[in-house]
């Protein structure tokens, strides 16, 4: 972020930033968060066959619920986390119950529309969400912020790290916790998928009618799948909020969902382990374009932003055209179509 463009010689590209721990920790945190988001999508898209384009909404509901519960309702942060997860699950079921009856393309459009409704609500319900100013601390008590407890815990972790690392980065504890969660989620989901429960999910993905004809109550499984991705979305939302020190509506644009889809497709559908690898690769490249000192002109800040968008676009197009199973997906379990 803090690169001074004047210090760069014209047409010289320096990779200095890539040697800094701050860069890697930043990439690590965001990749970990996207691993969680994309794991949720993997459950939905890769293993249940429901195209959820509303992951950003689950993040938003989770993050806002957490922030509002701690700051407005003054509930302890650690209690607010599970409560916010429950709220997000309830929201997911509320959306899923009518929308899961729709055909796949309508479901996709309905979920993205729903996500936009959530974002617009967050933008405009200023009393509750703080609107575009975002929410971070109580209005009447600027010391009451949603991240207070986390900061304490984070400092405690860093204090105990002193033996290994004399001057740890501020974000390092977040990195640890994000990845611990992401890895735990990966293992848990792998376990769930290899059970009879996961078998029904895959059957729903393959052919819902066939599953119903064999006595499976498919709607329940689809709702459970959605509840899982809502949970992961909410957790991703918490970390997003802790990474930024405020929750803004702009954090939850449809772009976030599409980034998560890029991660998902890069790693490969119907494969949990690929998600983390996809997330790290994707965010290494995207953040790399921000940190590498590209000469200005022609690389102005908006052009670098455009470059990131172009990379994402080309990645999606290229993968869909040449390697739709992603890096680790099995060709036999191609969910995208033969």
């Amino acid at each position: 972020m803090s690169v001074d463009p004047t210090s760069v010689a014209p047409l010289a590209v320096t990779f200095e930033a890539l040697t800094e721990p701050a860069f890697w920790i930043g990439v690590g945190v965001i990749a970990g968060i996207y691993t969680l988001l994309a794991l949720g999508l993997q459950v939905n898209v890769g293993f249940t066959g429901i195209v959820n384009f509303g992951q950003a909404a689950f993040m938003a509901v989770g993050a806002y619920a957490m922030a509002i519960l701690t700051v407005k309702a003054e509930i302890n942060f650690w209690l607010a986390l599970p409560l916010a997860v429950l709220i997000t699950i309830a929201f997911g079921l509320l959306v899923g119950l009518p929308a899961l009856r729709l055909r796949a393309d309508y479901f996709a459009i309905a979920t993205i529309a729903m996500a936009e409704v959530v974002r617009i609500f967050a933008q405009n319900a200023r009393g509750l969400t703080g609107g575009n100013q975002g929410i971070s601390c109580a209005e009447d008590d600027p010391t009451l912020c949603y991240f207070n407890e986390w900061r304490e815990a984070s400092d405690w972790i860093n204090d105990n790290l002193v033996f290994f690392w004399s001057d740890p980065e501020d974000l390092f504890p977040l990195l640890l916790v994000v990845w611990a969660t992401a890895i735990a989620a990966t293992f848990a989901l792998t376990y769930f998928t290899n059970t009879p429960w996961g078998r029904v999910l895959r059957a729903v993905r393959e052919d819902e009618d066939a599953a119903m004809a064999l006595g499976k109550r498919t709607l329940r499984f689809k709702l459970q799948s959605l509840a899982l991705s809502a949970t992961l979305g909410a957790i991703g939302g918490f970390f997003f909020a802790l990474n930024l020190a405020a929750v803004y509506p702009i954090n939850f644009e449809p772009l976030v969902t599409f980034f998560a889809f890029s991660v998902l497709i890069l790693g490969g559908l119907a494969n949990y382990k690929g998600v983390a690898v996809g997330a790290i690769l994707f965010w290494f490249v995207l953040e790399g374009t921000r940190f590498i000192d590209l000469p200005d002109p022609p690389f102005t800040e908006t052009r670098i932003a455009a470059l990131r968008l172009a990379i994402t676009g080309l990645l999606l197009i290229g993968l869909m055209a040449f390697r739709p199973q992603g890096l680790f997906g099995k060709k036999e379990e191609m969910v995208l179509g033969e």
């Binding site: 676009g313 999606l316 197009i317 869909m320 033969e338």
Partner: peptide, 18 residues
């Protein structure tokens, strides 16, 4: 498949905007 095309069109949207 349908998802393949949808994701490709999203990629194209990004590319155009970029």
């Amino acid at each position: 498949g349908f998802l393949q095309l949808i994701l490709m069109s999203i990629g194209l949207a990004f590319l155009l905007r970029a």
